[in-house]
């Protein structure tokens, strides 16, 4: 089994994993980072969204062998104390219902705002379309992103 050194949340981690192991399962099984969620395994739901060099990617479909020296950020590393503006507004506006998809939603929204600090409705929808919320929190997700963009 090959060994990989991957950079996650600013720290280097050494993991032994098959080359085709999705980053999702490395995070969850090997590195004890459960914030990145398993939803579909085929990059169709967004629950497993992390950042790769700041871009939102689906970790369920990213093999550990493809990461190389790229920097991975997970929900655990998005902010120091869970106080990223999106995390704060998500709590204030009570966005979540069951909450399972929300770390993926926040990671996706954070990548969007980094590239486009003031997205309009169409830009938010285009960026967030890949993230399913089965509870139906979309209206609040959109409002929360707009609140951070305005601030």
């Amino acid at each position: 089994m090959p060994t990989y050194n991957i950079n996650i949340n600013g720290k280097s981690h050494q993991v032994d994993a098959d080359a085709d192991t999705p980053l999702l399962w490395v995070l969850r099984d090997d590195l004890d980072m459960p914030g990145t969620k398993f939803g579909c395994g085929i990059a169709m739901c967004g629950a497993c969204t992390v950042h790769l060099n700041g871009n939102a990617v689906r970790s369920c479909s990213l093999p550990v062998s493809a990461i190389g020296s790229n920097e991975v950020t997970t929900i655990e590393g998005l902010s120091e104390n869970g106080d990223h503006p999106l995390q704060k507004v998500w709590i204030e506006q009570d966005v979540a219902q069951c909450g399972y998809c929300q770390t993926g939603q926040i990671m996706n929204a954070a990548a969007l705002l980094k590239q486009n600090p003031n997205p309009d409705d169409a830009a938010i929808e285009a960026a967030m379309k890949g993230n399913i919320c089965r509870c139906g929190t979309y209206v609040r997700i959109k409002n929360a992103i707009k609140s951070v963009a305005k601030a």
Binding site: G35, I75, E76, Q87, W90, I91, D94, A96, G99, T103
Partner: peptide, 16 residues
């Protein structure tokens, strides 16, 4: 009152 588990949810704490 906002969700008492809001902070855990948005920071990805083991809940599920």
């Amino acid at each position: 009152q906002t969700n008492v588990e809001g902070h855990k949810i948005v920071t990805g704490k083991p809940l599920f």
